[in-house]
Nucleic acid binder design. Sequence first.
DNA 1: TTTATTTACGAAACCGCTTTCGTTAGAAAT
DNA 2: ATTTCTAACGAAAGCGGTTTCGTAAATAAA
Lengths: 337, 337
Amino acid sequence: MNKISIKMLANELGLSISTVSKAISDSHEISATTKQKVKVLAEKLNYVPNHFASSLGKRKSKTIAVVIPEVVDSFFALAINGIESIAQKKGYHVSVYLTHESLEKEKMILKDFESGRVDGVLISISRETTCFNHFQNIINKGVPLVFFDRVPDEVDTFKIITNDYEIAYEATQQLIMKDCSKILFLSFSNILSITNNRLEGYKNALLDYKLKVSEKNILYFNNELKSDYLLLKKELKSPKRPDGILASVGKLTIPVYQVCEELKLNIPGDIQVISFSNLDMADFLNPPLSTVEQPAFELGRKAASILVDTLEKKTKHLQPEEIVINSTLVLRRSTKL
Amino acid sequence: MNKISIKMLANELGLSISTVSKAISDSHEISATTKQKVKVLAEKLNYVPNHFASSLGKRKSKTIAVVIPEVVDSFFALAINGIESIAQKKGYHVSVYLTHESLEKEKMILKDFESGRVDGVLISISRETTCFNHFQNIINKGVPLVFFDRVPDEVDTFKIITNDYEIAYEATQQLIMKDCSKILFLSFSNILSITNNRLEGYKNALLDYKLKVSEKNILYFNNELKSDYLLLKKELKSPKRPDGILASVGKLTIPVYQVCEELKLNIPGDIQVISFSNLDMADFLNPPLSTVEQPAFELGRKAASILVDTLEKKTKHLQPEEIVINSTLVLRRSTKL
DNA sequence: TTTATTTACGAAACCGCTTTCGTTAGAAAT
DNA sequence: ATTTCTAACGAAAGCGGTTTCGTAAATAAA
């Protein structure tokens, strides 16, 4: 109700608006005593500067956007924590936007950022993202953008990723060493580079160990619980069913465990499984899930650091660069000892 | 780079600034043909109105804040989805803020909202929140606030909660029916009303079934993995250890499963457990976890509806009211059949 | 003492859009 | 034909700060 503005402070103190403004922002051209007076009154009246007015004047908002496909996902949730950890330290606000894996929503969201609403954006693209103008547009408007985890090759800017290829290779290798001869790869997108890199790692491991690479062993899920479930069930019911599974994304482990249970397939006896996942309960699943754990927090942290650093610089242009932070393979009992 | 403003559109078209502004917002006082011209040019030049300028002018931002303790938590993540689902529909942006269970951070965040940065706020308070002026302050500034799930008794505004007392009673009753005689209650806050309501439900169930209510059977966790773990371990190692556990919040199941495994305690043979949790892998834990599932999505949805509705009204004052959405007890194999 | 610097502050333009309040020309009413 | 509306648009005053620039007084330098 009692909206108090800088003008009211000025009147009250018999000072000019500009003096008060400067005092509040600790300008060097204001004397210590005046600053003191202003601040005391501001405190007393519980004055909080209008965010829009100051953002408009300064042409920056001190907020960064985080655009992710989902939030009900340990990976992204942890990444947010990483981002927050540094944003807070540097005095930036973070706004989270969800695309729900929809390219359309992603476009809408980015379009909106052209309004200057945010100073910079951190984004992990949707599984549908096949065009890239919306990224370029906002970069062209002078809003720095850094991709993390799910990055597109087509846009030149900073990217923070993990070693998808290598770790998928390693995971596949692990399955092979434990005598898997028919390994299923669970993908949930044929366009995302992370998924494709993981797929490549998988394929090359197979090749290196003289195993057949077959398209039939690659299942593309479409993010719908029921159909994904049926797809997998059909596969595991087949007489020549796989004896190993590499799930390229955390949420795919739900159907895996479910189908195996229904089909009375023993993990790891009948079929071994490794999944990309950051689930903190992995240890207590039945059986405990062997995972490749991504450095989610660190990815977020790093991405935010890079972004904030360039925001603080005079030149807000990000030269293209790629930083990779390694994932780690954590073996539990869904693979043989 | 090419920042284009309403002024440029006006010049280009030989119209006044106000006309262009009105045309863009589809004012009735602008002719269809002029609107057409303006919009075509705006589209062509990829014009996006400056968010701060328009928010400043209109004195509203079309964004609502969501303040939660954590995001790495299925409950809150789902709640966000619920909130988003309706915010999007009504054309509101949502900004997520994390308190990390810290009252200090909570205060800082709310203080900032006094700047008018957001039109309204949805909040689930931290486990430390024992004072409430920061809520009242922002309400007094005319920013409507609705609490969900973790609500304080001390502030009069809209609240969306779940039936904590009843469902805790029911869960406890279930344990009792399955022959538990010493049931441990795991709390992680002695000030949060949700925890206390759950505790009351637990206590009253015990009383109704003539079981002893003892403070020794109530463990207060302090949100630090290691010490919580030790606290629980000590308890379960005791010769007169409990034969049932009711965990009042999802994350507490990690130490429970961990300690039981280390101590070779069979769940549910030696000890049965029910936990408040929205974990989607509950079915595949070892053993599958009996849970009380909270209607997280619905809580968020409802809270957002209420908030947005009042934002659209002329009178933005929320009369105090409480809406209860029921949780459900889902029995799995961490309790006996 | 005179001149050159600082120091401390105010006037006013500006940020980019919204909104109120004319104003004018043409349509409708009398 | 005169008056009254109405439709369509522009001028200008905000919105609440920030920032540039000017200036008077105080201090330092010459």
